[in-house]
Amino acid sequence: MLEQLEELKLNALKELGAITGIKELGLWRVCYLGKKSELTRILRGLAALPVEERKLSGAQANRVKADLEATLSQKEQALREAQLVVAAEKGRMDVTLPGRPFPVGHLHPITQTIYEVCDIFASLGFQVVEGPEVEWDYYNFEALNIPEEHPARDTMSTSWVDFKTGDGRRPMLLRTHTTSLTARVVESRQPPIRVVEPGKVYRYEASDATHTPMFHQIDGFAVDRGITMADLKGVLYEFARRFFGEERKVRFRCDYFPFVEPGVEMAIECLVCGGSGCRLCGNTGWIEILGAGMTHPKVLQRGGIDPEVYTSFAFGMGIDRLPMLRYGIDDIRLFYSNDTRFLSQF
């Protein structure tokens, strides 16, 4: 019996040694350690043996079983490791081939700019509001100190909607500036107010490299006790610093807009020539970015805010010009011709 066991063990180990694949290990296990294997049969037959022999053979049989199992486990581990090495070796490929394309979308550069500008002002406590693009003459002009026949109207050629009132007036228009929303805000909100008003505006103008009949603006408006022109300067300088960079010089000069007094124009040092004068800045070294000022007392009064109690500033700037300056875009029409070869660059 003992010799039989020894022979069985030798055969089993010999066969195991010859195995090269993990699948064959399973067959080997069935053959030598399975329910119908010789070893199992011997182990089951032990009960029929006399006590002495049973002890001896039993111990031996169990030892053989344990040996085989241990060796199998070692062998399996060795084979699995070898397999991993092979797997790592195999499957070489050209990693320079492009990956599977995932489509990439882009926001329109104007949208991106509006979000960026709004974020800057939001961080200064300004809330973003939007309003109607088709507007009454009153909010676009009258309420902003621009009565009919005012010369400022000539500078904002207006697209009028074909709508007449009973008395023959034509009071509906496409807003020429987002300041029309300021006229609404002043009427509908109570101080303290801090808002920015981005959106589309329209002019009755033929298209060329610097004009389109539709473009974008953002207006800003703050009302509270104790707001000063120094605050206006601080807020706008902060905007310029964040949008155009720390080192970009900024200029604040006197200008006129009917709805502010004192009036301001803010310019930045030319991005192309850095102030020495070039075609972009008309040889002045400066590029006008926005108009601003302390809100005219009449505008506040008309909206029901007492200018003796509250002071206020307002500003307005063109949006389209900002990405044009930043990216060196020389034709505003590119924004609205929507060629994806242009748009996908941003």
């Binding site: 200064l124 809330q127 939007e130 707001i227 022109m229």
Partner: peptide, 19 residues
């Protein structure tokens, strides 16, 4: 205008009602 200092709004933030 260059004699005017640049300050940031010192008033409490107005209540925000985002649209």
């Amino acid at each position: 205008y260059d004699k005017i200092p640049a300050t940031l709004l010192g008033q409490p933030l107005p209540r925000q009602n985002p649209e």
